[in-house]
Design a protein around this nucleic acid. Sequence first.
DNA 1: AAGTGGTCTAGACCACGCG
DNA 2: GCGTGGTCTAGACCACTTC
Lengths: 240, 240
Amino acid sequence: MRDNSLKYKIIFNDLRNKIITGYYEINQQLPLEKELGAFYCASRITVKKAMDLLVNDGLIIKRRGVGSFVKGAASRVASAPAAMKPFGFTAAHQGQAVSSALIEFTVAHPQPETIKNLYLEATDFVYHFSRVRYIDKQPWCIEYTEIPINIIPGIRIDNLMDSIYQYIEVETHLRIQSQHQVIRARRANELEVQTLGIAIVDPVMEIEQVTYLDNGQAFEYSIIHYRHDRYELQNVNINS
Amino acid sequence: MRDNSLKYKIIFNDLRNKIITGYYEINQQLPLEKELGAFYCASRITVKKAMDLLVNDGLIIKRRGVGSFVKGAASRVASAPAAMKPFGFTAAHQGQAVSSALIEFTVAHPQPETIKNLYLEATDFVYHFSRVRYIDKQPWCIEYTEIPINIIPGIRIDNLMDSIYQYIEVETHLRIQSQHQVIRARRANELEVQTLGIAIVDPVMEIEQVTYLDNGQAFEYSIIHYRHDRYELQNVNINS
DNA sequence: AAGTGGTCTAGACCACGCG
DNA sequence: GCGTGGTCTAGACCACTTC
């Protein structure tokens, strides 16, 4: 990544490491913005930009008139910066043995929800597929996905065994830019009981999502059901 | 709020309204940062700050070398800006008839999870209470909460019928600054089946949270179980 | 080549907490 | 009154897209 050459990201990552490794302890005051600017040879504005990212990730608090301090929660924070969370199951479990079982793969007209979320016509065509995702051969979740064929052409069965996002970014010149999700708890259905190896009384975590390319085009409508014991979401709310 | 006098928030809110009301249509290009700066009598940097907030809320995308565009998801976006989401059940349901039923209220030593998350000693004392929360007399969720008595003293039973956060901010001079949450799906227990009026096979949405004051002090450890049909979380992920 | 947004700076002034 | 972080500016240069 050439992102590493951006000054505010260098400062962000360095401060983040110093907090996570305990170089800065919990509740300890950080150096002043002015001092950090001198240390990193950066303007105060650039240091502030880096520190504001730390605030958004829940690692520090800033108090006007007082200073900046390491937050107590810092020791339990996710390993990846929130701003750099990767998209998709494969990327989220990088380094682990991810595999997939294809349940269904057809080309069809889009379902009503897909029409609404991707602004399609009922007469359009989409790839319609569902697959179970495994880590170390343990079932993790089941994905129900529709992707318009005229936005992402050329998907074949063997692309679905790996990361579909990787196919899109590597085989085409399109880049994935963002993802809008709605998260709910739900009862599992019969298919999920069988494929995920859970009991009929076990819930699943539902993630309904629309994924966007960097040109603003929504290209995927997907519903993912996770085993409830294999998914949790971290969230930090900051008061304006 | 004197927040309204901040230029970047004025611009943010004005652009946000123009997007939500359809003054700017989906996929329409917004005026250039330079033009908006002239329109609002603001520098380009200030306009950019406002627009970056819109990006984080998932309302627009920005393309270097091209311009900024209204995102398709804009029409389905939450009514409140993500950056200004209020804390707590009462605030989240402002204008609705919120009521509470107290299940338990004692002063006790903290549970292990509370000790770990609030950095307490086993010999400390906490308010330990649980309550069911209703909207229009319909059960919505059940909260299990512990708050150290030496951080927030003077909580009485009648405070628990209303918003405990409101008690804290009004009766003391402390201000609530942030909240760290972990969200999971879970099976309901016997108490929840009865108090929430759900079936034993129905899941609940679990929110485990630590809430912080603006001095960085963690003052509350809480687990909330929502009826799965009465809670959903919206989430926007942006690629670096 | 022209024009967009992204980064960075130096400097100013303000709001706030504290002594 | 002092020092903190918050806001805002004018201007520079860069990375990127499009023509």
